[in-house]
Design a protein around this nucleic acid. Structure first.
Lengths: 247, 247
DNA sequence: AATAGCGGTTGACATGGATCAATCGAAAGC
DNA sequence: GCTTTCGATTGATCCATGTCAACCGCTATT
């Protein structure tokens, strides 16, 4: 099978995708829908697409017409300033939605990049609005998802505005751990898909500071790190680190 | 007129509020609606309420059932950590919406405090969802407003994550200036409604740093400050300060 | 008009994290 | 299998911002 072309037409695009038999439905947009409703939204998802590691799902400035549900894989979203400074605005995993920022201006306002080979479902936004006029549960859940994104952003603002480096990294690890758990992965052991630099950008720190904080956590027995492989040895310890203003 | 009671029943609550003759309609939720549609949403806004300076519109933890449109005045929203640290997540002015964060969990996740005597319209959320199933324009605009909030939050993350103190303050002043303009106020001269400490909390800085940055801007002729009274003398200068990484 | 109190300004000093630089180690390409 | 390259680690030093403290000057209250 050839695999060098820039934008290959993956056979997956032709496969009929069905929310009704997707095992992520309880994490994703269809959450809370009845069986009957589930079947009605099956044709909401028009396309399934593979995105290779390093490729963009969309770029800032492109016109917006769909939001994307992650079926498998891992993404980052980032915003670039003219002078080259980058801010990673989030890391997204299976079951989470990408592209909500584009609704506002009908143009994407950030870049979405796959951090590992991934697979997404495209949800044409016009269709979603039509269907959510008919299915109250869908409408309400969509509003909740957007609101949850706002709450998450406030959490990041809190982190960036009030926490010190080690508190930020602890919060970050605990957040990842919790989201992996919700997806049936280990609470305490996982591979990071992003570089120290990307973590740093997200947390408002330089990569060296992130690296040092990892080493410190290891010295103190909170975690075991080997490159991107993380084992959390003392969840309570990390939590304590966040709450008390101990130095 | 007595005015010492804690929660006085203001006569305004009884006045029939009408979006159709509100002069903020082009900034607020009814944006883009036809005359006919405008009249249909008039009974969306159930209550008008006055909030005195320093009073809460809502508090974190309270159950959510309405979003609020600011008719007049000025608010801040903030999140408090258990250890007392505060993060101001935003400043809101006339025509802007408050409470979107509450949709997610059906509980408010932050506090909304009036920074001057203010007046709000309560929009019961269930009603809004019902009506937006019938009026496409309303549905679409509401989605845009939520998305805009997400984009705004990403801007703040960028600010907190990548900018230095003076860049942050410049960005803040330019943002305020632009929003005042949209409301028909002066581009270049305004009163701040918040303290240095609140600005600092929003920008992830200590109040002393904010104060010093104001003084620096004044020395360099970008602005004239006297307490809360600000005059911007050199908009281009402030913009340049943000873009170039000059130190 | 006098006074209390809070918000703002300014200075001196401390420090957390940035910066610069060298080295190491793992993964990828030849 | 060897080499190249990129990401991670660690050390030394610097600097922007935080911290502590004194003082100033509005504004509001009596």
């Amino acid at each position: 099978m050839p695999h060098g072309s820039a934008q290959p037409e993956h056979p997956l695009s032709l496969i009929k995708t069905a929310c009704s038999n997707c095992n992520l439905r309880e994490l994703c947009l269809p959450f809370g829908l009845s069986l009957e409703e589930l079947e009605r939204i099956d044709d909401l998802v028009s396309t399934r697409r593979r995105i290779k590691r390093g490729d963009h799902l969309y770029r800032a400035g492109e016109t917006f017409d769909a939001i994307y549900a992650i079926r498998a894989g891992f993404f980052k979203t980032d915003v670039l300033l003219e002078d080259g400074r980058e801010q990673v605005t989030g890391f997204q995993m299976a079951g989470e939605l990408l592209g909500l920022d584009g609704i506002s201006t009908e143009h994407h306002t950030c870049n979405a990049v796959a951090l590992e080979d991934s697979e997404i479902c495209a949800i044409p936004f016009a269709k979603l609005e039509t269907l959510s006029r008919e299915i109250h549960t869908l409408q309400h859940h969509f509003h909740k998802v957007m609101s949850r994104e706002i709450v998450r952003d406030h959490g990041v603002m809190m982190l960036l505005g009030t926490m010190r480096a080690e508190e930020r990294l602890a919060a970050f690890l605990l957040n990842l751990s919790q989201r992996f758990t919700a997806r049936g992965f280990s609470h305490t052991e996982f591979y990071l898909r992003m570089t120290r630099e990307e973590i740093g950008s997200y947390l408002g720190l330089k990569l060296e500071t992130v690296s040092r904080a990892f080493s410190k956590f290891q010295e103190e027995g909170y975690i075991a790190v080997q490159q991107k492989h993380i084992r959390i040895l003392n969840v309570a310890g990390l939590k304590a680190l966040m709450n008390h203003r101990t130095c």
